[in-house]
Each structure stands twice: as structure tokens, then as C-alpha cells.
């Protein structure tokens, strides 16, 4: 299996994961009061998932170059 295709598949998987994580019903789980390290839960969740997703995308896209 070609590496480029593997990367593409990983990225598609991340896309699907992002679609799930950023939407109802998962979003609803965090749509309530409360804070994480002083940051409102919903924001902490969205920004946290967002950053993790970017890191994984960076990993998937760049890794196969080396």
C-alpha cells in the first residue's frame, strides 16, 4: 500500500472524526456550565479538540515525507 494513500486515508479519517466531535450529539455533552483550568467547558472542549485535530493532521500530512 502506498504511503501517500495511507496519508490520504488518515486525513479522511480525521475529517470524519472532526465532523463527529464538532457536532451534536457529542457537542451537547460539553454544552453545560463548568470550567477546565478556568476556561468554560465548551470552549475548552472545542479548542482542545481543534488543536489536537490540527496536530494529528500535521502528523498525518508531514510524516510520510521523511
Amino acid at each position: 500500500m502506498n504511503r501517500s494513500r495511507l496519508a490520504a486515508q488518515r486525513l479522511v479519517a480525521l475529517f470524519l472524526l472532526g465532523c463527529l466531535l464538532f457536532n451534536f450529539p457529542l457537542l451537547a455533552l460539553f454544552n453545560r456550565g463548568g470550567e477546565v483550568f478556568g476556561i468554560p467547558l465548551l470552549y475548552a472542549y472545542i479548542f482542545g479538540v481543534w488543536l489536537a485535530l490540527i496536530a494529528l493532521m500535521a502528523f498525518a500530512a508531514e510524516r510520510e515525507q521523511s
Binding site: 496519508a7 490520504a8 486525513l11 479522511v12 480525521l14 475529517f15 472532526g18 465532523c19 464538532f22 465548551l42 470552549y43 472545542i46 481543534w50 485535530l53 490540527i54 493532521m57 500530512a61
Partner: peptide, 20 residues
């Protein structure tokens, strides 16, 4: 509140598909 965010989450997801 969070209403400003979808405009940026969408492109993030699109870029994940960018390779495709």
C-alpha cells in the same frame, strides 16, 4: 457565544480533506 466558530471549524475539516 460560540457562534463565531463554525466559520473556522469548517475550513479546518475541509483542509483535512485537502489532500483529496
Amino acid at each position: 457565544g460560540i457562534g463565531f466558530l463554525p466559520i473556522y471549524l469548517g475550513p479546518t475539516l475541509t483542509l483535512a480533506l485537502g489532500w483529496f
